[in-house]
Simulated assay, not measured.
Amino acid sequence: MSAIAELIREIDSLKPMPQIAQQVMALAQDSRTDTEKIANLIRFDPYITGDLLKMCNSAYFARSRSIDSVHDAINILGMDRLVDLVVMKCGAVNFAGEQRGYGLDEGALWKKAVSCAIIARDLAIRVGFSDRHLVFTAALLKDIGKVILSRFVGERFERIQHLVAEEGYSFREAEKKILGVDQSELAAIVAKKWGLSARLQTLIRNSHMPEGPVFSDAAANVVYVADQVCIMLGIGVGVDGLAYRFHREVLGALGLTARDLQQVIAGFGDKIREVEDLIGSF
Rank of each mutant, 00 (worst) to 15 (best):
I144G: 04
D45K: 05
F282N: 01
E167D: 12
A26T: 11
I235E: 02
I20T: 06
I48A: 04
S184L: 02
V135A: 10
L52M: 09
D84F: 13
D240K: 03
A188P: 03
K146H: 14
T35G: 03
Q183D: 05
A124S: 15
R273Q: 12
I235N: 04
D72W: 03
A187T: 05
T35I: 00
V214Q: 13
Y102Q: 10
L254R: 05
W110G: 09
I42W: 05
D68L: 14
G180I: 02
R43H: 01
D80K: 07
R159N: 11
P16F: 02
I189L: 12
D51R: 14
N40C: 03
S170G: 10
R43Y: 00
E6Y: 06
A139E: 05
F157P: 00
R9L: 07
G238S: 07
G241Y: 03
A96Y: 11
A243W: 12
D80F: 00
I20M: 07
S13N: 10
I11N: 01
N40H: 08
P213K: 10
K142N: 13
D240C: 01
V153W: 05
I204C: 07
R205Q: 08
K54Y: 00
Y60V: 02
G78D: 09
G212S: 03
G180Y: 03
A39S: 14
F61E: 05
H133L: 10
Y244S: 11
K37H: 11
A198V: 12
F44R: 11
A124V: 06
E36M: 04
L203Q: 11
E6N: 14
F129R: 07
V222R: 10
A39Y: 01
F157A: 07
Y169A: 07
D270A: 09
D122F: 01
A243G: 09
N57H: 04
V70T: 12
I148E: 05
Y47E: 11
H247R: 04
A96P: 00
I74K: 03
E211W: 09
Q228H: 14
P18Q: 02
Q262L: 07
A139N: 07
V135R: 06
F152W: 15
Q161T: 06
C230K: 09
V250Y: 01
T35P: 00
V83P: 02
E106P: 02
D84H: 15
Q161W: 08
E276C: 09
D80P: 00
F44G: 00
V127R: 08
Q183V: 05
G97Q: 11
S31Q: 12
I8K: 07
I67L: 10
I189Y: 02
G145M: 12
L134I: 00
E211G: 15
G267F: 05
M88R: 08
L140V: 10
R205F: 01
R100T: 13
V83Q: 03
I38A: 06
F268L: 04
A96K: 15
L251M: 14
K89S: 11
A39L: 06
Y102H: 14
Q161M: 14
I279E: 07
S13Q: 08
A5G: 01
K111V: 04
D84T: 06
W194G: 02
E6C: 07
A174N: 04
R121W: 09
N75P: 06
D122L: 11
D240S: 10
